[in-house]
Amino acid sequence: MEVRTIKVFTTVDNINLHTQVVDMSMTYGQQFGPTYLDGADVTKIKPHNSHEGKTFYVLPNDDTLRVEAFEYYHTTDPSFLGRYMSALNHTKKWKYPQVNGLTSIKWADNNCYLATALLTLQQIELKFNPPALQDAYYRARAGEAANFCALILAYCNKTVGELGDVRETMSYLFQHANLDSCKRVLNVVCKTCGQQQTTLKGVEAVMYMGTLSYEQFKKGVQIPCTCGKQATKYLVQQESPFVMMSAPPAQYELKHGTFTCASEYTGNYQCGHYKHITSKETLYCIDGALLTKSSEYKGPITDVFYKENSYTTTIK
């Protein structure tokens, strides 16, 4: 009895394709271990004539594949690729409408935090270190965002349907971005203890939790000093293409032309909904596939993004 075979390709990165001759009487799992086709788990399936010449994702289970996976995804987590594939199996079914010149995501599976993050990423200057993220990001900007969303979920250790947080998501993504040249110098002034300067680099240099107003941050924000008295913390120097200011959701007025974009969060910790506000020729609110415009805006804002380049204080 002759062994019926077909020729397929296996890959971990969709760049390096490895030619395989597979036995049609055995499952993919018996031949390769966990195997995925377009995100779908085909591990328990036997090869079919229609699979001839198709590319299958496999887990990096030998040295060659491990090197290829690390170079593309910059992670050695053995569960990463499987999590990416199972997320992709959902995100490829989502709709990605162009809204006001940006790629958004039609609401499904509690994905409003991903839509808000995706919209924000198209408006701030950011370059990702893992080629996987950078490639998928370019495709997302062009309207094909399924891979990018699935990668975000995998890097953030999230599953489809789980509630997510924009600030946490951005923080994970910033860790995989090139923020080497970003720098922030802060000064804390206390009447009792004097003053202390701190220099922050990388992710810490672009994120701040405690106030939404970048102007206020430049002037000074009140913080408790270690001595128990009130101290003032203010920005001395900022070198970065953008800054992200966050605070627990509270009524906040966004003035046209003073910011790049913002995240609105309605609801409580267990259950809520994100919308995205962007400042173009007027203010726009993007909620999944829905767009509304207004000249002014007041609502429960939790993150505001500002364009920056270089700032030095005039406070002496």
Score class of each variant (00 low, 15 high):
32 F>M: 09
205 A>M: 00
32 F>I: 12
304 V>K: 00
148 F>K: 03
195 Q>E: 15
296 E>P: 12
35 T>M: 11
66 R>F: 13
244 M>I: 01
108 A>L: 05
234 Y>S: 07
43 T>G: 13
263 S>P: 01
18 H>A: 07
60 P>M: 06
288 G>P: 02
60 P>F: 08
170 M>C: 08
175 Q>Y: 08
266 T>C: 07
227 C>N: 01
273 H>W: 02
232 T>M: 13
235 L>S: 00
40 A>L: 14
196 Q>V: 10
69 A>H: 11
143 G>R: 03
243 V>A: 01
153 L>V: 07
247 A>K: 02
123 Q>H: 06
159 T>H: 15
137 Y>A: 08
35 T>R: 06
29 G>C: 09
10 T>Q: 09
152 I>F: 00
266 T>N: 09
19 T>M: 10
284 Y>W: 10
107 W>F: 05
292 T>Q: 11
29 G>W: 09
136 A>S: 10
222 Q>C: 11
103 T>K: 03
126 L>G: 04
183 K>L: 11
82 G>E: 15
118 L>V: 08
209 M>W: 15
279 S>K: 02
77 D>L: 05
221 V>H: 10
31 Q>Y: 13
139 R>K: 14
88 L>R: 03
161 G>K: 05
190 C>F: 03
34 P>A: 09
16 N>V: 10
22 V>S: 08
277 I>N: 00
162 E>P: 00
214 Y>D: 02
63 D>W: 06
312 T>G: 09
49 N>T: 13
24 M>S: 12
295 S>N: 07
13 D>N: 14
4 R>M: 12
33 G>V: 06
253 E>K: 06
267 G>K: 08
33 G>I: 04
166 V>P: 04
187 N>C: 13
127 K>T: 13
71 E>F: 05
136 A>W: 07
181 S>L: 08
117 A>D: 03
55 T>G: 07
141 R>F: 08
202 G>M: 01
57 Y>T: 11
26 M>H: 13
79 S>T: 14
183 K>Y: 14
230 Q>Y: 15
180 D>S: 11
262 A>P: 01
59 L>K: 08
158 K>H: 01
56 F>L: 11
95 K>A: 12
40 A>P: 07
212 L>D: 05
281 E>P: 00
108 A>D: 07
128 F>Q: 05
312 T>M: 14
194 G>Q: 02
39 G>C: 14
227 C>F: 00
169 T>G: 04
152 I>P: 00
184 R>F: 03
31 Q>R: 11
130 P>I: 04
7 K>Y: 09
266 T>L: 10
242 F>G: 04
160 V>A: 07
120 T>A: 15
143 G>N: 02
271 C>N: 05
129 N>F: 04
260 T>I: 15
245 M>I: 03
247 A>T: 05
172 Y>D: 08
234 Y>L: 07
199 T>V: 11
231 A>N: 01
114 L>K: 01
256 H>Q: 14
47 P>D: 03
72 Y>G: 06
190 C>Y: 03
51 H>V: 05
106 K>I: 09
26 M>N: 12
50 S>D: 13
267 G>L: 07
308 E>M: 12
160 V>Q: 05
311 Y>M: 10
216 Q>D: 14
47 P>I: 06
106 K>L: 10
245 M>E: 02
262 A>L: 00
23 D>E: 13
158 K>S: 02
9 F>K: 11
313 T>M: 15
102 L>Q: 04
58 V>C: 10
55 T>Y: 08
45 I>N: 15
312 T>Q: 14
127 K>D: 11
72 Y>E: 07
118 L>K: 03
205 A>K: 03
134 Q>T: 10
239 E>Y: 09
219 K>R: 13
291 L>F: 15
136 A>E: 14
64 T>H: 09
174 F>T: 04
160 V>I: 09
287 D>C: 00
250 A>S: 13
172 Y>M: 10
66 R>A: 13
262 A>Q: 03
146 A>I: 02
289 A>T: 10
36 Y>V: 05
291 L>H: 15
209 M>F: 15
241 P>H: 08
112 C>I: 04
198 T>N: 10
156 C>I: 08
87 A>T: 07
85 M>V: 07
310 S>W: 08
244 M>Y: 00
193 C>N: 04
265 Y>P: 04
241 P>E: 07
278 T>G: 08
173 L>G: 02
161 G>F: 01
67 V>R: 14
233 K>Q: 14
166 V>S: 06
193 C>E: 03
236 V>W: 08
316 K>M: 15
268 N>G: 15
207 M>K: 09
77 D>A: 07
114 L>M: 08
153 L>P: 03
141 R>T: 11
45 I>F: 15
232 T>H: 05
2 E>C: 11
316 K>H: 15
186 L>W: 11
116 T>G: 07
286 I>N: 00
297 Y>G: 02
22 V>M: 11
206 V>C: 09
214 Y>I: 11
163 L>G: 12
295 S>R: 13
221 V>W: 04
148 F>S: 03
51 H>W: 05
114 L>P: 06
113 Y>R: 08
19 T>Y: 11
211 T>M: 09
76 T>C: 15
233 K>C: 14
310 S>N: 14
258 T>A: 10
282 T>R: 10
135 D>K: 09
138 Y>K: 15
32 F>E: 05
228 G>D: 01
52 E>N: 12
167 R>P: 04
59 L>M: 14
12 V>N: 08
218 K>L: 04
58 V>Q: 09
243 V>R: 01
201 K>N: 12
258 T>D: 14
47 P>A: 12
152 I>V: 11
82 G>D: 15
42 V>G: 06
97 P>H: 12
199 T>E: 11
212 L>I: 08
267 G>E: 15
96 Y>G: 06
92 K>M: 10
149 C>A: 09
77 D>W: 05
138 Y>Q: 15
227 C>R: 01
315 I>Y: 15
312 T>L: 14
34 P>R: 10
237 Q>G: 05
123 Q>L: 06
306 Y>N: 01
231 A>H: 01
285 C>G: 03
201 K>T: 14
96 Y>F: 13
119 L>D: 07
164 G>D: 01
200 L>H: 14
118 L>R: 04
137 Y>E: 05
208 Y>G: 09
87 A>F: 02
171 S>A: 13
268 N>R: 13
71 E>R: 10
100 N>A: 12
292 T>L: 09
66 R>V: 14
39 G>T: 14
45 I>Y: 12
115 A>S: 11
34 P>I: 13
36 Y>N: 05
194 G>T: 02
148 F>C: 04
155 Y>D: 05
240 S>G: 06
251 Q>A: 09
234 Y>C: 05
298 K>F: 13
222 Q>S: 13
139 R>L: 11
16 N>L: 05
117 A>H: 03
302 T>C: 10
38 D>L: 09
229 K>P: 02
117 A>G: 05
82 G>L: 14
122 Q>N: 04
138 Y>N: 14
236 V>N: 03
25 S>V: 11
286 I>A: 03
93 K>D: 11
247 A>G: 08
237 Q>S: 14
276 H>W: 08
288 G>Y: 00
284 Y>L: 15
306 Y>S: 00
145 A>M: 04
164 G>T: 01
